[in-house]
Write a protein that binds this DNA or RNA. Structure first.
Length: 314
RNA sequence: AACCAUGAAUUCG
């Protein structure tokens, strides 16, 4: 409906509060949202800290005998999964099945993500089998979700094995899949492997984007390999890929943690010069680094300086 | 008929 379109537009412009006003307006006027509008509303509320309001809308539509669609359930599972409410997500899934609605690829992927976030790897494995017996084929989303989930569960061998199984299947691996694997390896401290896959993806013609670069840079930063990180920043530039605040933050953090606060500050200046303004993550790393080096005075100085910064939303 | 759902990167706690 018209409401549905307007609400999407508002959200994409960051006007979340206006969506609530619109919802109120609809309620006052007695306008009944249609299915798509309910879905959109539930999605917006659920992803913006108003999950319980979203769930009550779902109850409301059930009470009004508006039949939820597979999408409604996908949205609910996604919103619940993001905040770790897996049990409720799974209950929603069961309700969906009781209504004899058939989950599609997106619904399955969404459930995998919810299960993976909660570390329910075995459950996810069972659902993978169920998906396959239902004749639903996986896609690249499926595998990046599963690989990410295995990484979170510290099952690195399984993550690598799964990746290698799908790497050469057309359309089943992409830049996101590589990035998920690189991140998982990096977080586990397996920087050699992370670097190996990073090189491999380039050889195979997958262009790393700013997220991929940030992931590998973070891995190496955490391993204290500052020289290699510097090399990667150059490689990035050569690839025409611009670093963003998150990319820089990884290196700032590494420098601060290593007690190289002077270098960290220099990097901050470079960031500003390039239009990447240090944010709360940056300052948090700096202050923490100074504090843990015993430079309490300087840490406090930075803190005071940051407090003086006007409209930076820190 | 049309509009609506899924995946990857940074800090401290």
């Amino acid at each position: 409906s018209l409401y549905c379109v307007v609400m999407k537009t508002l959200v994409s412009h960051g006007r979340k509060a206006d969506v609530l006003n619109l919802l109120e307006e609809m309620e006052k006027k007695g306008t009944n949202p249609d299915l798509a509008t309910y879905n959109t509303l539930i999605d917006i509320l659920g992803k913006n800290g108003q999950l319980d309001k979203a769930l009550s809308l779902y109850d409301e539509m059930m009470a009004k005998k508006i039949r939820p669609s597979v999408m409604t359930f996908g949205i609910l599972i996604n919103c619940l999964g993001r905040v770790g409410r897996v049990q409720e997500a799974y209950n929603i899934w069961k309700t969906m099945r009781q209504l004899r609605l058939r989950p599609n690829l997106i619904t399955y992927n969404t459930l995998f993500d919810a299960l993976g976030r909660a570390g329910h790897i075995n459950e996810a494995g069972k659902v993978v089998e169920e998906m396959s017996t239902s004749g639903v084929s996986p896609d690249a989303y499926t595998f990046s979700i599963l690989i990410h989930s295995l990484g979170r569960a510290k099952k690195l061998s399984a993550a690598k094995a799964l990746f290698q199984k799908v790497r050469d299947k057309r359309g089943m691996a992409d830049v996101v899949t590589y990035t998920a694997l690189i991140t998982a390896l990096g977080k586990a401290g397996q920087t050699e492997d992370a670097l190996m896959f990073f090189k491999e993806m380039k050889i195979r013609g997958y262009l790393p984007n700013v997220i991929t670069y940030s992931a590998i840079i973070d891995s190496l930063s955490k391993a204290g390999k500052v020289d290699e990180v510097t090399g990667l920043f150059q490689e990035m530039e050569a690839d025409g890929c611009a670093p963003n605040v998150m990319t820089y933050n990884s290196l700032v953090h590494a420098l601060a943690k290593a007690g190289m606060s002077a270098d960290a500050f220099k990097l901050c200046e470079e960031m500003e010069a390039r239009g990447c303004y240090p944010d709360a993550f940056t300052y948090c790393s700096l202050i923490d680094g100074l504090g843990k080096s015993g430079l309490t005075e300087q840490a406090y100085e930075v803190f005071e300086k940051v407090k003086q910064m006007p409209e930076r939303n820190l």
